[in-house]
Computed example of a mutant assay.
Amino acid sequence: MHGFFLLYVALATVAQSLIGFAFGLILFGRVATLQVLPLTEVAVVISSLTLGNALGTLGGPKPELDASKRVKSTGLKHASDRQLPDPGDGEQQTAATRRADSARMLS
């Protein structure tokens, strides 16, 4: 019985590592479907493991971000260097302009 539970924990952990979520969903669903352990115990185990995972992630080393690599890959020195499209080309109207046009058409 406990061997199956540990297998399901390992499966849920692999899924969490690969896709970044669903540890509790997979483990709870699998255990509930096959009735390996009482669900109240499984809920406590999931909460404990999730809390431990979060504490380990938050307490672990923080990577340093190297801004020089971002600048080289994008060619931008600062976010304000981006050229945004000009909204004055007539294609985009403000909501007030559209309402005024609609009112004129109705009268």
Rank of each mutant, 00 (worst) to 15 (best):
R30A: 15
R30Y: 13
A32I: 03
T33F: 11
T33L: 14
L34G: 07
Q35D: 11
Q35P: 08
Q35S: 14
V36I: 08
V36E: 04
V36H: 02
V36M: 07
L37T: 04
P38Q: 01
L39P: 04
L39C: 02
L39N: 06
L39D: 05
T40W: 06
T40G: 06
T40R: 05
E41H: 06
E41C: 02
E41D: 09
E41P: 00
V42C: 01
A43D: 02
A43F: 05
A43W: 06
A43N: 08
V44S: 12
V44F: 08
V45C: 03
V45F: 02
V45G: 03
I46P: 04
S47T: 15
S48M: 11
S48E: 11
S48Y: 09
L49H: 04
L49D: 07
T50D: 09
T50H: 06
T50M: 13
T50C: 13
T50F: 05
T50N: 12
L51M: 14
L51P: 07
G52C: 03
G52I: 08
N53R: 14
N53E: 05
A54M: 09
A54T: 13
A54R: 13
L55T: 10
L55K: 12
G56L: 08
G56N: 03
G56W: 07
G56A: 04
T57S: 00
T57L: 03
L58M: 03
G59C: 02
G59S: 00
G59L: 00
G59V: 01
G59W: 00
G60D: 00
G60T: 02
P61C: 01
P61W: 01
P61V: 00
P61M: 03
K62Q: 13
K62E: 09
P63F: 02
E64P: 11
E64D: 14
L65C: 13
L65N: 12
D66Y: 01
D66L: 02
A67M: 13
A67G: 11
S68G: 11
S68T: 15
K69F: 02
K69Y: 10
K69S: 10
R70P: 00
V71M: 11
V71I: 14
V71C: 08
K72H: 10
S73A: 15
S73K: 15
T74Q: 06
T74M: 07
G75C: 06
G75D: 03
L76P: 05
L76H: 09
L76Y: 10
K77W: 02
H78F: 08
A79R: 14
S80Q: 10
D81R: 04
D81I: 05
D81H: 09
R82T: 12
R82A: 11
R82W: 04
R82Q: 10
R82D: 05
Q83T: 14
Q83I: 09
Q83D: 05
L84V: 11
P85Y: 01
P85W: 09
P85F: 07
P85I: 01
D86M: 03
D86W: 05
P87L: 04
P87N: 08
P87V: 06
D89G: 15
D89A: 10
D89P: 08
